[in-house]
Amino acid sequence: MREPPGLLDYARRWPLKLWMLLVGLFLYAPLLVLVAMSFNDSRRTTHWRGFTMDWYAKVFEDAELVQSLVNSLSIAAFSTAISLLLGTLAAIALWRFRFPGRMLVDGAFALPIVVPEICMGVAMLIFFARVMPWPAGLPWPLSLGPIVIAHVSFSFPFVAVVVRARLQSFDRAQEEAARDLGAGNWRALWDVVVPHIRPALLAGALLAFTLSLDDFVITFFTAGPDTVTFPVKVYSMVRFSVTPKVNAISTLLLAVTVLLTFLALRLQARAAAERLS
């Protein structure tokens, strides 16, 4: 027999159970319908007419769509690499040193996290139109520059937050020991501090990658006609019609998101287990 719920075990009381069920339905039903309809053998997206993979084939026949996906993945990769470097440096600097204006820098680095997306999009639009025009007609990866720059600007503070949290658990005595044993400052940093924050680096990288892949608003303002990203392309398709093709693309992107989230959680769980043992 199951025990009755504990005094504070709210998750097992029926009013809350019912509530959780409804909220879960609210959060997931639209997504599940979307996934189901992507396999629906009907142009009209409401009636179920049988299973098909045609829409997925159609997605891959659409050269523009595939190009936009390649753009998005490349932007996310570049942006992740740069954000990881900058975010880690910022986190270590703020953790390691006492200097005048530290609080100010700390607060400033939090700004890109809280500033509304639309404001940042506008800022990037003006910046690349008037202050630092990006040369037109550059060969492919270079033409993505403005979008990569914009993505790094809002991603690296997130990486810094994640790495900083991990640094809290670092025992400074370890670094001192390394220095006492003759390691230089940089050497101690690389050999002692960096291994400690490795799980945070992975988590930060996944975060930066997802943020970049998901961003629509800021990219919408920075993308040019030949640097269309995946969300921007999907947006223009959605504006015109609800087609099963959009369902198929969305399902693919959903699958990537689910995969990345589980990967991140897996890594976190493993890091936690290592800490315990």
Partner: peptide, 16 residues
């Protein structure tokens, strides 16, 4: 999971 899911896709899902 929904938190990580693309905003555009989630909005689009509601249209359907």
């Amino acid at each position: 999971l929904p938190f990580w899911t693309n905003l555009l896709i989630r909005t689009y899902a509601l249209i359907a």
